[in-house]
């Protein structure tokens, strides 16, 4: 049962042919070639597949693509500026060495992005709470939390300037 669907991803409309049993992660990676979003546990446990739907983080591996057609999807590819300049959040991840293997990083970035939009001045505890659905097996989370805190400060400073 193939169907034509339009997805709004990172502000751009993509037309593609999907089937109802495809998940959003399948469509993003295999149809739209946006491979920043990772498939890992495919059960909604690890958060590597996190994307934003209408600015809220969701697990794209257990979301049917047909159910996400009328939402505004944001993936990690949409964070950097069109010229390729990293966003303050990505920049903070680089400066703090907040990635080792990097498999969880796309999900971490999207979750953090949603949190910083909702709460531009989070505490460390709030950051830990918000990324509690994103599993990292390498870093031990300290550097990731450091990076998000630094990004929050930099965004605040840039807005205040």
């Amino acid at each position: 049962m193939k169907m034509l669907a339009t997805f709004n991803v990172n502000g751009r409309d993509y037309d593609t042919v999907i089937e109802p049993h495809m998940t959003l992660a399948d469509v993003l990676r295999d149809k739209l070639r946006l491979t920043g979003t990772k498939r890992a546990c495919t059960a909604g446990n690890c958060g590597a597949c996190t994307v934003l739907a209408d600015e809220d983080p969701i697990c794209s591996c257990i979301t049917l693509a047909v159910l996400a057609r009328d939402k505004r999807i944001e993936t990690v590819e949409g964070l950097a500026a069109p010229g390729g300049a990293l966003s303050p959040l990505q920049d903070a991840f680089v400066k703090n060495n907040a990635a080792q293997c990097g498999f969880c990083t796309a999900g971490m970035l999207m979750t953090a992005q949603a949190q910083l939009r909702d709460n531009p001045r989070p505490t460390r505890e709030e950051v830990k709470q918000s990324i509690s659905g994103n599993i990292c097996r390498c870093t031990g989370y300290v550097k990731i939390v450091d990076a998000i805190m630094q990004a929050a400060e930099e965004i605040q400073a840039a807005e205040g300037a």
Partner: peptide, 9 residues
């Protein structure tokens, strides 16, 4: 709810 993302879906 765990993971927190589930609450949005």
């Amino acid at each position: 709810l765990y993971p927190p993302h589930i609450g949005n879906m």
